[in-house]
């Protein structure tokens, strides 16, 4: 059986990776993928802790997170599509019409 700490390390790594992707990548879709990574890092943690505590709460939470992450991804992709229609690019730095 995998010790909980290993899963937590994986979760932490995923979280950092996700954050790094969000902050550095220029393609909007890749950035959305970074968001998914962050959410799934939390999911991993929840599951691992749920197993550790032998309680269902964490699993329920992660189920909800999966659902909402899907919803968020759907909304996000739809918006990215819209933005692409207007800007003809997915480069986050070039989507920049609302500014001071």
């Amino acid at each position: 059986m995998v010790p909980t700490s290993h899963v937590l390390f994986l979760g932490a790594a995923l979280f950092c990776l996700g954050l790094a992707i969000i902050l550095t990548k220029k393609n909007t879709i890749v950035v959305l993928m970074g968001v998914e990574l962050m959410l799934n890092a939390a999911n991993l943690n929840f599951i691992a802790f749920a197993r550790m505590h032998e309680s269902l709460e964490g699993q329920i939470m992660s189920l909800f997170v999966i659902v909402l992450a899907a919803a968020e991804a759907a909304v996000g992709l739809a918006l990215v599509l819209r933005v692409y229609q207007y800007f003809k690019t997915a480069d986050i730095d070039r989507i920049n019409s609302v500014r001071e």
């Binding site: 979760g11 979280f15 996700g18 954050l19 969000i22 909007t28 950035v31 959305l32 968001v35 962050m38 959410l39 890092a41 939390a42 999911n43 943690n45 929840f46 802790f49 964490g58 939470m61 997170v65 968020e72 909304v75 996000g76 918006l79 990215v80 819209r82 933005v83 229609q85 207007y86 800007f87 989507i95 920049n96 019409s97 609302v98």
Partner: peptide
């Protein structure tokens, strides 16, 4: 469209951070 996408990204990061610390 642009600002709602940015709103989403900002919000997504905030909920990611929230979830991770909740975990």
């Amino acid at each position: 469209a642009e600002s709602s996408m940015k709103y989403l990204l900002f919000g997504a990061v905030s909920s990611g951070v929230l979830l991770y610390s909740l975990s």
